[in-house]
Simulated scan of single mutants.
Amino acid sequence: MKTIGLIGGMSAESTTVYYQLINRLVRERLGGLHSAQIALWSLDFAPIAELQAKDDWAATGVILADAARRLEGAGAQAILICANTMHLNYAEVAGAVSAPVIHIADATAEALKAKGVTKALLLATRFTMEKPFYAERLAAQGIETVTPPKGDRDRLHAIIYDELVVGVITEASRAAVLQMIQDAKAAGCDGIVFGCTEIGLLLDVAAMPLPAVDTAVAHCEAAVDFALA
């Protein structure tokens, strides 16, 4: 079994999901008392969120690259950035280490294609919805993405940063996001991307009116595929 390195803390809520799910998947595949070999570097999210708000991605790239080097030094044989938005710094992280860095959008694209999705609603932070890095990565694999209108994007961004990353789940926010999904379905979307690793805390993939992929789950599955290959 190979060792998986996790750059976590962005947020701690979803990093917990990564840790639990990767271990559960390993146990399910190997049986018995097996669990994953994981090295975790959990970052303080507050200064990173401040840099995000300033659009200072060069500074966040330095932080994440340092985390990747620390993980590789601890024995990680593959590295995951446990956040969709921070894949803005994928190049910096991948360039800092010799271990492969498993891209969350690649894992997501494979899961979407398996469900036959070609035009997906991207639900994520404002950064992930409005900057091209994520949509372009999915487009390269034949997946078109659309985002909610600006007012809904702003609402979703606030739900993520003011509620989900600190473990707050409300029915009002769930209803608001479900309405965004219904609107996208009416507009012709045939799938949904939970493009923030916290959205799975708010919504149940199995209960969606369209095929949906939780990016955190797809990312964990890709990590376990690598670890057990």
Rank of each mutant, 00 (worst) to 15 (best):
L202V: 02
A206N: 07
Q37Y: 10
V205I: 07
E130I: 03
P211T: 07
G191D: 07
A139F: 00
S173R: 04
A68K: 05
T145S: 08
I81W: 13
L64H: 01
I192C: 10
L71I: 05
L201N: 04
E163H: 06
K113I: 04
A223E: 06
L156P: 04
T118A: 13
V217Y: 10
I159T: 04
E171V: 00
P148K: 08
I169R: 10
Y18R: 08
M86A: 14
A65M: 06
H157P: 14
M1V: 08
E136D: 04
L121C: 10
G195L: 03
V177D: 04
D55W: 10
L203T: 01
W41R: 12
I7H: 02
T118H: 15
G195K: 07
I22C: 01
T108M: 08
Y161D: 02
A91F: 14
E171W: 00
E144A: 15
L30Q: 11
M180F: 10
S173G: 02
G75C: 11
T128E: 00
E136S: 01
R24V: 07
V205E: 15
D162W: 06
T197D: 12
R155V: 11
K131C: 03
F45S: 11
L201M: 07
P100A: 10
L138P: 01
A186E: 14
H157V: 12
A140M: 00
K185R: 15
A46M: 12
L201P: 00
K54T: 10
W57P: 09
Q179S: 05
D55L: 14
A184F: 02
M86Q: 15
P211R: 09
A216E: 03
A124F: 05
T16Q: 09
K113S: 10
L123P: 00
V177H: 05
A99K: 12
G200S: 11
K185T: 03
G32S: 03
L121R: 11
V168G: 07
A96C: 06
V101P: 12
G9V: 10
I181L: 09
D56M: 11
R70F: 02
F133D: 03
